[in-house]
Design a protein around this nucleic acid. Structure first.
Lengths: 218, 218
DNA sequence: CGGTCGGGTAAACGCTCGTTCAGGAGCTCT
DNA sequence: AGAGCTCCTGAACGAGCGTTTACCCGACCG
């Protein structure tokens, strides 16, 4: 009936132990190790040992160590881009609601998928230049979503952002907000005092204050 | 009279070309390259070629590549710690003035000494654990200066920071502010629209808004 | 003016890296 | 049952790393 003990190949052993096929196990082990120690010092042997295979087996699933990194970063980054756009799109017309939704989604994701976010943000530079361009484009897209919200808020008169010498620099403000939210993944841990939702709420509030959002009441 | 042409050794050649002794030239070349490409992928040969010497000469000045990194990071970090403490100390008694002074000094430094700040913030993890402890201690010290200012502001009733579920988490807010200010060094460049002083002013204003500082007028 | 010595050179060492490849084990299909 | 396919093993390869070493030059001192 059961096919438990009939599976005895190396790949079946991985599935039994990890509950998923080797490709997934490799991706996950790589994520963890890249996050903990950094791409250049994690060896192919390290990754494969962590999922109970030998070095050579990597090359049945990825063309190179570089492609492995590119693969896990792009999937994470694309998902993040999708989440941010969706959050803004679903938040209605109010710029404050859009900003809050954006920040909440962004922070939630960076708390919940800490490891993935950390790798995607810290390890791009090891990719070769053509691959790194992809990721930078996606980052710029996310930044532009945020800038769009800020512009709209200013035009509608519901944001009153800081000015330097009489002019706003919304791009700089957007960068500051993104830096703040992104690097939550560097220090937030499940041991912290605040839950993910509380972090998201705190950061949304800080963002609204930063841009000078006029409050519904008070 | 002049001793110009009498200096013809390799060390003298470095001084003539770089205007400083080899130790300094090595430190500076290492800074630049670590910032651009990251500690693990910059080789000893790279660094020494950049200042016109051969690999072996490094070991007349530093015990190892690791010690070189430790040396340049600790000096930068100690200076930053000093600057932050001094800024707060000289700002008088008003928490808002202290916060603004802290942020201004911190951001100014991260704009002006972009490269140094970038290395000190990004490359610690490659040091061995006993050395990394030093740096973390210094970072914590800086954070605690900021937390101190926030606590004082709240006690005096001049700050009204965001609350989650009725409680403030000043440490989280301090981390958010520091993340924001620190990562200026990742994207700020002399080509940007804002000068260093303008960046500092912008970030100080954002910080004051974030903590809900009551304004002197209005 | 010859000895001393700091600080350079260039070759070599041992090691580990990413990657390749010949060989083999187990699954599926007829 | 056996061919064929997928996928893993484990040894091997060449390159590049940080570091050590033997040697040497030029400046300084009595």
């Amino acid at each position: 009936m059961t096919k438990r003990k009939t599976l005895r190949s190396a790949v079946a052993a991985v599935i039994e132990r990890e509950g998923r096929p080797p490709v997934e196990a490799i991706r996950s082990a790589a994520f963890r190790q890249f996050a903990e120690r950094g791409y250049p010092v994690v060896t192919v042997r390290d990754i494969m040992k962590a999922c109970g295979l030998t070095q050579g087996a990597l090359y049945n699933h990825f063309r190179s160590k570089d492609e492995l990194l590119h693969d896990i970063i792009t999937s994470t980054q694309a998902e993040l881009e999708r989440i941010c756009q969706q959050a803004v799109a679903e938040a209605g017309d109010d710029p404050s609601a859009k900003l809050a939704a954006f920040v909440r989604a962004y922070v939630m994701r960076h708390c919940r998928l800490r490891v993935e976010a950390l790798v995607a943000n810290r390890e791009i530079s090891w990719l070769d230049t053509s691959r790194v361009a992809d990721i930078r484009r996606s980052r710029r897209a996310i930044r532009d979503v945020l800038v769009g919200v800020l512009v709209q808020g200013v035009e509608k008169g519901v944001f009153d952002p800081p000015k330097v010498d009489g002019h706003e620099d919304l791009k700089a403000i957007a960068m500051a907000l993104l830096d703040q939210c992104t690097h939550v993944s560097m220090w937030y841990g499940p041991g912290g005092r605040l839950a993910e939702e509380q972090m998201a709420a705190l950061y949304a509030e800080m963002a609204l204050r930063t841009v000078g959002a006029k409050r519904p009441a008070g």
